[in-house]
Design a protein around this nucleic acid. Structure first.
Lengths: 168, 168
DNA sequence: TGCGAAGTATTCGATATCGAAATATTAGCA
DNA sequence: TGCTAATATTTCGATATCGAATACTTCGCA
């Protein structure tokens, strides 16, 4: 019957302890581990919502990438943004185009390139999904005051501002 | 030649704006988007490191799950922890066992169950990888003071403490 | 005790993903 | 201009993943 699954908090505690023991720095691991644990949990919830929309996580990643970019993107860019091999994007786009969520259009200036964009139906699906996930996300942050949310966002944004300087 | 890829900061700004426009709440989206953007970037770096270790991200997830748990886990538990179908775990464990990184042992008390644990070689690989990734992770947080790291960790841990109450 | 329901790992067929090769276009430069 | 290297997408064969079905064990309870 298996022992019950440990709480997320307990998992986090153990994870940090393990990483520190393995040679990681505690102040680093507390943050990184928490960020990853949170993402994993969110991903599980999204997966559940996506079933209703008959989308895979990978397809959803394409839709959000296009929505967030606010402009057309090439298959290669989409592959990078969604952490997938370029060759995999071909099939994903085939499926999404077949469902009428995205469309491919040739670049007149560079005929090796193709632009992918969201259709109206794609935008509509995006809006529906976002309003659904915002509910869960609000619940997740419910124990933080407005001031704390602002501070949390600020600190994370400091970290993000540094990201590009690292692998450069 | 494609326009250069926008900075992580710019991507974050746009993403938040898009989500807010689609009906999300700003204080929520600033945090959630930042967390996800950070994880995505980290995943890209890990992927690069894992190539050297000849491990896939999925295999690495199994190794870390076992290390963090600090005890044996069943294939089903590993599948849940790594967000993968139970049937997929069978093959992953086959490969990992073949390489001598994990081992399966029967549960004497429940013969439907199998316990998976890290071998010495598995632990060793884990340590090497952690020390490698800690370098990158430290770089990521380099713009935060010790106090800020502590505050960031504290806020994230408040959020984590709530996770289990949500889908319950 | 006996028996149906639930739990656990695996197998199996269909699909998705990967890395390398193929195809086509463009860029750089002598 | 002509030629090589770099880019961008797709195709292709091998592998990984998924969901459903299978085989087996244990649990709940009459």
């Amino acid at each position: 019957m298996a022992e019950r699954t440990p709480s997320a908090q307990e998992l986090h505690r153990r994870a940090v302890a393990t990483y520190v023991k393995a040679g990681g720095e505690e102040s680093v691991q507390r943050v990184i581990t928490a960020v990853q644990g949170l993402t994993k949990k969110l991903d599980q919830w999204y997966a559940r919502q996506l079933v209703d929309l008959e989308l895979t996580a990978g397809e959803w990643a394409v839709v959000t990438s296009l929505a967030k970019a606010g402009e057309s993107l090439t298959p290669t860019q989409l592959a990078e943004l969604t952490n997938v091999a370029p060759s995999s994007m071909t099939h994903r786009l085939d499926k999404l185009a077949e469902r009428g969520l995205v469309e491919r259009s040739p670049d007149a200036e560079n005929r090796t390139r193709i632009f992918v964009s969201l259709t109206d139906a794609g935008w509509q699906l995006f809006s529906v999904a976002i309003r659904g996930s915002d509910v869960v996300e609000s619940d997740v942050l419910q124990d933080l005051s407005d001031a704390e949310r602002g501070e949390l966002a600020r600190l994370l944004e400091v970290v993000i501002a540094r990201l590009d300087d690292i692998d450069a």
